[in-house]
Design a protein around this nucleic acid. Structure first.
Length: 459
DNA sequence: ATGTTC
């Protein structure tokens, strides 16, 4: 190991990890060339492809590497939260109608196709412009871009570096939710922990919000797969033996490294466009179902932030500002108060951090901190994190009616695939409250509000 | 996460 491994966790969460390979993977990552300070993991960490999910690793630009496994298969998987002007009691009687309408009008599930069929030219524009493409075509407003991390566009995207197969998979999946842990959820603000930050973010108790958790769909998957294959082929050129082939990577200053970053940026832009379209459709569905106008409904974007990405960022290392390639795989950016990357409206309190829970549980809104900036490369956790494999979860769900169990917990869940619900049972995940408590106490982000799920659509 | 191994 070139640097230490550091896991932010609690005794309870660590015990729950059992034989999980995550901690070993934290150590494996610490072998990579150019890694800076430490290989980190957040309390929601668990086994992933090469790098642990919930992992953070930063590499210096000259000697360092970029690794597709350090980003994950779902490039720019992330969350966006919309804050409505509605109070929970106003929509109690319309909740089922809303969930049904969302389920019927938002394509979800494995291989789902969207309403849009992109021309080759439009798809290239999506890949370079990101969420701006959606806004230019009438799906949302300039204000939405203001509240999206990096305004919903990553620089350096080059569609020439994206394979024909990835382009093919992407052309009809825009505006689709996907499968697995992805969801669109109607939630109510249940508890406020930080009144000042909540007020700045426009959150109040009893308020209805909508959380969208989705990513870059088949296109991002294909980009990851293509570049893993290419990097594994040249793995010997790294010059040192790697503890795991799944750590396949390329020097940041190599052709392969630059090509991956250019293709990854395309997938990131696709994901931001996707969440922008999902949000626009959600606004239309709320308006139609409730018979209300946009003014009355609110439904402004509170924030959109990704949790699977590699980004070139300037961060303090040993008291000096250094340009680094920060890999966040199942980890969320959590930039501090005053940082220029934040929308001016939020600069006083820090970046909104959106933490999706497991199915039907709800979400947290946190705020980024100065300690995250100096300690964890401006990063915090990304969710509850699996504690059970998908296959184990399916086994544990046999003979049960998951929708009924969710209904008994007071959450309406509609899903296109029965298998997904079985994989996503709450007991397959860690305790979200415990995960958030760890990052809060460690100072990596501070609790602002907890939202409880009311209705949820899934793949 | 993923047209769940073209």
């Amino acid at each position: 190991m070139r640097v230490p491994g550091i896991i932010y966790t609690s005794e309870k969460l660590m015990r729950g990890m059992g034989e999980d390979e995550g901690p070993r993977q934290v150590a494996n990552v610490a072998h990579l060339p150019g890694i800076v300070t430490a290989s980190l993991a957040m309390p929601d960490m668990h086994w992933g492809y090469g790098f642990p999910i919930g992992g953070v690793a930063a590499f210096e630009m000259e000697e360092g590497v970029v690794s597709p496994g350090g980003v994950g298969y779902d490039i720019n998987c992330g969350c966006r939260l919309m804050a409505t002007r509605l109070q929970a009691e106003e929509i109690r009687d319309r909740l089922q109608a809303l969930v049904t309408a969302l389920f019927q009008n938002i394509p979800s599930g494995l291989g789902s196709r969207g309403v849009l069929k992109l021309s080759a030219k439009d798809e290239r524009q999506v890949l370079t412009e990101g969420a701006l493409w959606a806004v230019r075509h009438g799906y949302g407003t300039e204000g939405d871009l203001e509240m999206t991390e990096d305004r919903g566009v990553m620089a350096g995207a080059d569609p020439e570096k994206v394979s024909d197969r990835a382009l093919e998979r992407g052309k009809d999946q825009l505006g689709t939710l996907g499968s697995g842990n992805h969801f669109l959820e109607i939630e109510v603000v249940e508890e406020i922990f930080d009144r000042e930050a909540a007020a700045v973010f426009g959150l109040e108790s009893g308020q209805i919000c909508v959380m969208i958790h989705s990513g870059s769909r088949g296109l991002g998957y294909q980009v990851c797969d293509d570049y893993l294959a290419r990097m594994v082929k040249h793995i010997h050129e790294i010059g040192i033996p790697l503890p795991d082939r799944q750590l396949a990577c390329a020097p940041l200053n190599s052709g392969r490294g630059r090509d991956y970053l250019a293709a990854m940026a395309c997938a990131a832009n696709y994901a931001w466009t996707n969440r922008q379209l999902l949000m626009h459709r959600t606004r239309e569905i709320f308006e139609k179902t409730l018979g209300m106008g946009p003014r009355e409904l609110g439904m402004g974007l509170l924030y959109d932030v990704c949790h699977n990405i590699a980004k070139i960022e300037t961060l303090p290392v040993g008291g000096k500002d250094v340009r680094l390639c920060v890999h966040r795989k199942g980890a969320t950016r959590a930039f501090p108060p005053g940082h220029t990357a934040l929308p001016p409206a939020y600069r006083k309190v820090g970046q909104p951090v959106l933490i999706p829970g497991d199915m039907g549980t709800g979400s947290y809104v946190l705020a980024g901190t100065q300690s995250a900036f100096t300690e964890s490369f401006g990063s915090t956790c990304h969710g509850a994190g699996r504690v059970m494999s998908r296959t184990r979860a399916v086994k544990a769900s046999r003979g049960r009616s998951i929708p009924k169990e969710m209904a008994d917990r007071g959450v309406i869940v509609m899903a296109s695939g029965k298998g997904t619900l079985m994989e996503e049972i709450p007991e397959a995940y860690k305790d979200l409250d415990e995960v958030v408590e760890v990052v809060h106490r460690a100072g990596l982000s501070k609790k602002v509000a907890r939202l409880r799920a009311l209705g949820c659509i899934k793949g």
